[in-house]
């Protein structure tokens, strides 16, 4: 910025738009990796092996109880102490993925356990292997029952991405971008309303996509009138 402007400029709008893009990117990438990791952890916890169950249970408890902001700082400092030079943005992305994986793991476990045992027995009784029955029966049936819970996690994740600001991660995501503008033009209400609208639009987008997907399932399995 070469000249100081006390009003909201086109550049400010672009900064917020880019910030929204960064927020969406952080949500998408950490949501993807967190879901993959959480899926593996949740699945592993359903295998009847006590040490694994409790060890992963501890993992879940730690990352669900320690405030995310502390996780960001500790993880980032930890990397520095071990001499790993990773930029704050990537460090934040990894922290977010691990954080959300703990929540996803519990959702996945409850999804797997929601499939009636007799349905799984029927699959095994047909000669399917454990992996076949898992892939063709347990995953699709379980996924339908936990989709709303998983969607809730992803919406929460989007709002949590704003905390990467504590690492001074660049480029700034939506909330950080908004704060930068507020500091300059001193119009917090208007800018926060604008930022809130951006969050709403992005969250709503996710909800609409998931709902449409869910509806296509329900239409297939609906009870005949």
């Amino acid at each position: 910025m070469n000249s100081f402007s006390p009003v909201f400029t086109q550049g400010d709008f672009i900064l917020m738009l880019k910030g929204a893009g960064i927020t969406f990117y952080l949500t998408l990438v950490s949501g993807l990796f967190g879901t993959i990791l959480g899926f593996l952890i949740g699945w592993a916890r359903t295998v009847k092996f006590a040490p694994l169950y409790y060890l992963l249970g501890l993992y879940i408890e730690v990352f669900r109880t320690v405030p995310l902001i502390i996780q960001f700082v500790l993880f980032n400092s930890g990397l520095a102490i071990f001499g790993l030079r990773i930029d704050p943005f990537t460090s934040g992305l990894i922290s977010l993925s691990i954080y959300i994986s703990a929540y996803v793991a519990e959702v996945v476990r409850s999804g797997i356990e929601s499939v009636p045992p007799v349905t799984v027995k029927a699959a095994r009784g047909l000669g399917m292997t454990y992996l076949q029955s898992f892939r063709f029966i347990v995953v699709p049936v379980g996924a339908r029952s936990v989709l709303p819970a998983w969607t809730g996690l992803m919406l929460g994740l989007m709002k949590d991405t704003s905390l990467v600001a504590v690492l001074g991660a660049t480029p700034p995501e939506l909330l950080r971008a908004s704060q930068i503008i507020i500091t300059r033009i001193q119009e917090p209400l208007a800018i926060l309303i604008g930022a809130g609208a951006f969050y709403f639009i992005m969250c709503h987008f996710i909800t609409v996509v998931v709902n449409r997907y869910e509806k296509s399932w329900n239409e297939k399995t609906k009870v005949a009138a």
Binding site: P116, A122, A123, G125, V141
Partner: peptide
């Protein structure tokens, strides 16, 4: 072996999806 032994249970267990 189970492919030779068809089984049907008391509880309904069709694959719902």
């Amino acid at each position: 072996l189970r492919t030779k032994l068809g089984i049907v249970f008391q509880q309904f267990n069709a694959f719902p999806h």
